[in-house]
Amino acid sequence: MIAVISLTALGVALGLGLGLAARFLRVEQDDGLASEIEAMLPGSQCGQCGFPGCGPAAAALASGNAPVTLCPPGGSALVRQLADKLGVEAVTSGMKESVPMLAVVEEELCIGCTKCFRVCPTDAIVGAPKQIHNVLREACTGCGKCVDVCPTMAVNMTPMPVTLQSWIWHKPAVAA
């Protein structure tokens, strides 16, 4: 009987303690966090996450209303950073196999309208009016905004090609 009472008392006391701790020691999530997260995001305002831009996306992340995997241009590196920052598990498996994408301009179709490079958030497209535009591989984030505005469908997204220098060994396919 004493055992039952003492255990119950112990349970109640500890439960109360936990409840109080949750109430009073809660980590305040303020705008500071959101702006820190915004600094981590690419800042290209590409909108691939479904939010109007990186600021709203950061706010959603800070309030826990968006998954850390929301940003395709950031890639898995960003997922890990965000997961560290927010103290959550980095689950990259739920993410679409994030092969880096690259915009490619088809020379036969490009009419040199300059629409694409005016929307490009990283100035990755070079060219002048009435000239074929070209994409700088290093600067392209694969956001696809140029694809949407191209009037002749001359811009396509293709996976970044694998070369001898970028090829890596696959993970050993072993159950053990």
């Binding site: 960003l78 290093e138 600067a139």
Partner: peptide
Amino acid sequence: GKLRQESIRQLTSAR
């Protein structure tokens, strides 16, 4: 990936 992210951020702010 990290380097790329860094350069994207720089390009964006340059723009």
